[in-house]
Amino acid sequence: MNETAQGLRTTSVGSLPKPDYLLHARAQRARNEISQEELDELSRRATQEWIRFQEEIGVDIVVDGEMYRGDMVAYFAENLEGMGISGLVRSYGNRYYKKPIATGDIRRPAPITVDWWKFAQSLTEKPVKGMLTGPYTIADWSFDNHYGSRRDLVMALAEVVRQEAQDLEQAGAEYLQIDEPAVSTRLDELDLVIESMAVVTSGLRAHTITHMCYGRFEEVYPRLLDIPVDQIDLEMANSGLELLEKFGAHPFTKAIGFGVVDVHTHKIESVDEVKKNIRRALDYLRPDQVFIDPDCGLKTRTVDEAKAKLRTIQQARDEVRSELVRA
């Protein structure tokens, strides 16, 4: 394959919607009406369905869809020593969540996601991404009843996330994504993000990625490129234009995960719209630098909406690719 044909690889940001039977089972599990084993069985079934779907439509780097996880921070907090879950806190309207809380020295008693990753990888020849939540985000979305400084808490978490990342790599993961959506809220703490990510990714040979949600990243560009990962994944469908223009003056030196569909709307984008977004990336970036995906995790969409959006991405990518080859 030539460089163009290899480029524009497709993937997903991480989470995918849980099918109704799984949502139902999770509610039953919360009321102790079914066992953890019964729930795990259904999580495996849902994982299998999503892997098969991604293979069918031709996604290059697949995800397990996080069928076995609830909240992206609480899931890790529940599996770490020294972290617990607090009482209910309101986020907006009538929505409440149980915020994690650091209660003691944080340790990882056992690998957290490795068995699930192995299971997903056993179902496909395509590479399955290892998916972790980054130390900065876990810290920012938790209370601290132990460390007393944001930096100390973040760096303690960096150590356990590093252990998990290394175990995933050892198990065979070629792509490791460490999500840091909280960064966009506090760009003034970018230095701490860089410092903690260095702990997580040092010594890894896998292709490392961090995903961040929309923020005014143009204000911290090109410092943004100092985050020690191979790829930065950004929401670019409805925003990011100002950032993209900065790539003209200072080239983007990493791979980029380029979000091309909005995850917050029920509307399914047209293939033409998505192609336009992909071409926007190619004004500034080489095809082999660009990974095409949705703006963010798709878990808040319905299963049908998520599938339609992923199909659209795939078709748009295929059309742009063949146009590039012809040109």
Binding site: G87, L88, R90, G93
Partner: peptide, 21 residues
């Protein structure tokens, strides 16, 4: 001040809003 608590009977407002919806 927090609108709901964590003990029994302490989530009346949350439940009432859900019922209104």
């Amino acid at each position: 001040y927090p609108k709901v608590g964590n003990g029994p009977g302490r989530q009346r407002l949350r439940q009432a809003i859900a019922q209104l919806d």
